[in-house]
Amino acid sequence: MIRAARSSLADTPQELPSRFIPTPERLAPYLSQKDEEIMTQLGSVEGREQVFQELLKHEEELRKVDPSFNPESLRRDLDLVSETLDEKQKFVNELEKPERKGIVRRTFGHLKNFAKKHPVVTVLLMAAAAVAVVGGAAYAAGGIELLLAKLGIEGISNYAEAAKRLGKVIEGTFPNDLPAA
């Protein structure tokens, strides 16, 4: 969760304006807090309100980063970030339940050691990892379907549907300040 190098408030490239999504990493420079502290703060209504009020003090800077910035969207996005982080933790907890843990480990093991035998699953997982860093627009116009075709797994409507949903999800919103992982 720690970024290798944090961008300053003003170094988001102006030629590539991106929507400001209040992830913990993007909030950190404005709040002068660690990602983990921000995640905790986002978990409560009061905490999100404090974050919201603090960000409004930086509204002018935020409009330079994201010309479409507006407080109503920010409030909604803060709620959505909180909800998603909460859901992710619940997902982790659900996978760790005794009745699931063994089969989940085996499934991950299959995908690690026999990736070429499971091209559809591994390609879609990695396509998600790609979309996470370059945005859906790069693959929106049938790009992931083209990818499946190049890998010889095209022509199956279910996979095409999966690819479409993944590729079109974040058209035009480039999370261009995400860490390189």
Partner: peptide, 11 residues
């Protein structure tokens, strides 16, 4: 929701 899950992916 799908967009936000992708934004919050950390590898």
């Amino acid at each position: 929701h799908r967009m936000m899950r992708l934004h919050l992916m950390r590898l």
